[in-house]
Design a protein around this nucleic acid. Structure first.
Lengths: 153, 153
DNA sequence: TTATTTTAAGACAAAAGACTCTCTAATTTA
DNA sequence: TAAATTAGAGAGTCTTTTGTCTTAAAATAA
């Protein structure tokens, strides 16, 4: 799999937050219900994003999490790096340590180019892009749902 | 990680075989020594490639495995599909089942394009390409080695 | 035939990833 | 003060991946 499950869950949650009013805190419980992700598991993942500075959290009633920046300032690559780390975008496709321009494996050149394509996509695509598209076309973030049902209270 | 370890080991082994005389059987023990992979583990992986028809095996003294086709007729994607299956090239980046043109997730379009880039690379690149390049530039398939030492008996 | 070399196959163990649950603490609201 | 909510740690489970080991089967050579 390209992205770990944790990363996928983090992306879905970030996307959900990008659809909402940015000033509003959303309780993790609500996120986990809407997105059908285990509450405790999602909590841990979002803690990573909070530690990273992409989210801020607020305790107590009316608390929750929210994005620290507008959705068009957060690229998918930010979420991926915060959760899965840089391995996807730096590691050798044949798993050789230290593979690079200096001491490459036979596949290095091809993979480096392909990897750049992946990075470009993740860098160019923002949460806002996907939230807008999702709203406009009523797309889904869960197995069965759609955006409208996500946004309904 | 893009490819599983099994798949990476399978690719390294296939690449090794592509460097050698195609009619000669190479014992898996030799492959595992040269490539520094656990013998029994590599055996299982190569059994998958044999079941797939990409390799043929021969028991007994002077036995081993060899490619069933010339290296320029085997693309990396063949090895990846035989070991990791089609998931990498078919699955949704957000992990949603049934994500496709008909019922896409918000990321579907971007990911489908990127995925095609990965597929193209894996389809265009053959074992022969990499074996030739590896020989010409004396590149490596292990942490410390180089092609020359791989080919030495 | 018998011993040796080699793949085939499957049981088993270890490690990592993906969760689940509990408990405590801190913060904020009402 | 009581309730809501995140923070954080940690134990425990389940599954998948990775790796080890043992035995069986096939081929060869002596």
């Amino acid at each position: 799999m390209l992205l770990s499950k944790s990363c996928v869950y983090g992306l879905r949650a970030a996307l959900y937050l990008a659809m909402k009013d940015r000033n509003e805190f959303t309780p993790i419980k609500k996120l986990s219900d809407k997105l059908e992700i285990s509450f405790h598991f999602l909590t841990k993942i979002l803690q990573q994003l909070t530690a990273d500075g992409m989210l801020e959290s607020f305790k107590g009633p009316n608390g929750g999490v929210r994005l620290t920046k507008p959705g068009d300032k957060i690229a998918l690559v930010d979420v991926v790096l915060a959760i899965d780390g840089p391995k996807l975008l730096t590691e050798c496709a044949l798993g050789l340590p230290g593979c690079g321009l200096k001491n490459p494996c036979p596949l290095h050149d091809q993979w480096a180019k392909t990897r750049d394509k992946i990075r470009d996509m993740l860098q160019r695509t923002t949460l806002e892009d996907l939230a807008e598209k999702g709203k406009a076309e009523n797309l889904r973030l869960t197995e069965d749902g759609d955006f409208e049902s996500l946004l309904r209270d």
